[in-house]
């Protein structure tokens, strides 16, 4: 019996999977019938592309749209603030908390 995948595909329509156990850089991971080359380390709770994504593509998680890609990202890539954005309201990070928005 194979070990359970470190990724979960929450809904069959999703184009990202969620990491449930940390993945080392350079791993090959299988989820939802797809084999993904994971090039960078992924922490629990983060998202990985399960197919090649293009800038402008809607991202689906829980079967629901959660935003859009801002850059092309290959299958197995980390999907986060650097390549994806909200379709509603901008997110902020700690860097944004210091200067202009003090």
């Amino acid at each position: 019996m194979s070990l359970p995948s470190p990724l979960i595909l929450l809904h069959p329509d999703d184009n990202v999977a969620v990491c449930r156990a940390a993945i080392a850089a350079g791993s090959t991971v299988t989820v939802g019938g797809e084999t993904l080359p994971v090039t960078e380390a992924i922490e629990v709770g983060h998202k990985v592309a399960v197919r090649d994504l293009k800038a402008g593509d809607k991202i689906f998680k829980y079967g629901a749209p959660i935003g859009s890609m801002t850059k092309d990202t290959p299958k197995g890539g980390h999907v986060h603030m650097h390549n994806m954005k909200s379709d509603y309201i901008s997110s902020h990070t700690r860097e944004a908390s210091g200067g202009t928005h003090a």
Binding site: A64, H80, Y88, I89, H92
Partner: peptide, 30 residues
Amino acid sequence: EAYYTVMGFGSFAPGNAEGGLTTQEEKSMG
């Protein structure tokens, strides 16, 4: 949504992003 847009931030803290959440609507679904 209108209120938070005026505030300039959604209900989304830096720790949410460090924990893998990227957008307000993703956090919302959870």
